[in-house]
Design a protein around this nucleic acid. Structure first.
Lengths: 172, 172
DNA sequence: TACTGCGTTCAGTCCGTACTGAACGGAATC
DNA sequence: GATTCCGTTCAGTACGGACTGAACGCAGTA
């Protein structure tokens, strides 16, 4: 029964709805291979009308200020949150940038796309390596041919994936 | 200088090209949150003209048979590899199913899509929770309104993501 | 210049989990 | 039925990385 405590310092988020969003965001991040605290911080800020200080984030989430410091740095570097100066207050404050679609877009541009292009290049270069393996006897003729065919199917797949780029830019 | 060793038992994959594919597949899996051995197994089978036994997979990759056993079960459950009976041989043999596009498609259908739909439902249900939080005083009027607006932007994003489904079915 | 309040950095701990080795069960061969 | 040869299961280990607490640096304040 989370009821607003008037005088005492509130150590945690006291809204069930907010908590469940924070939890979901944390789990999502963890699933994608990111620290769960990063997701929690973004979730908290995402539902906060006014900017929050580093300290208050740490208190509300029940995590150390160190984690919040590194987490906010990450999020800011991705353009997911913004640092805000509150006049007459020495503490750093943060607010969420709610355009998640843009985040996904830039994540694709900065992470997925380059990786896809690089692997495309490596795939073609790899056929040359396979030929060397064949010539040094590490691969039989049959194996070499088979590998080449498989690498070509891989290339086709990569082409298909790359064709997603414009769609993603368009939809989100 | 990996040259084919005639008599001695070959403990590892002896083609640089294959090794690099196996390595890449392992890293990709690890990045997505899957055991790297799963990717390595698929990579090895993907470039093998004839089916491989569980034991030979373990030898070539330098991992335990236990890992191969669990890994092959996973891959087979996803339809990424197929168990093959080699006549006159009691060992289980495996071969890769090279249609990776289909794998991605079914992974989306079985994992991403349901999760997206569920979170869509939870998002609308959550507004009701937020209203309760408001009525119990855990949320001010301003906070409640703000949260509702943010949840609506979230819903829009989810709609956008869901519209990917037909495109994905079409391209891959 | 000393002091306080802030954020960052870093060594160390803790936790989740991938992986292993050994024990187990089951089928084919004798 | 005994034995051998498989694959699977499970307890235990090892490893990576997220998180913490304390020390540090750096501004503002006296």
């Amino acid at each position: 029964m989370p009821v607003a405590r008037p005088g005492a310092a509130p150590p945690t988020v006291h809204s069930r709805g907010r908590r469940s969003v924070i939890e979901a965001a944390g789990n999502l991040c963890r699933r994608v291979g990111l620290p769960r605290t990063v997701g929690q911080i973004y979730g908290l800020l995402f539902l906060s009308p006014q900017p929050l200080s580093l300290e208050s984030i740490a208190e509300q989430l029940g995590i150390s200020k160190a984690s919040v410091s590194t987490g906010t740095r990450q999020l800011a570097s991705w353009g997911a949150i913004r640092q805000v100066w509150v006049p007459g207050n020495r503490k750093d404050h943060f607010e969420a940038i709610p355009e998640i679609g843009g985040l996904i877009r830039s994540a694709y541009r900065q992470i997925v796309k380059p990786r896809l292009d690089a692997s495309q290049k490596r795939a073609t270069a790899l056929i040359e390596v396979l030929r060397q393996d064949y010539e040094t006897g590490a691969l039989t003729k049959e194996e070499f041919d088979f590998c080449c065919r498989r690498m070509h199917t891989l290339s086709r797949l990569q082409k298909g994936l790359q064709s997603f780029a414009p769609l993603l830019e368009q939809i989100l």
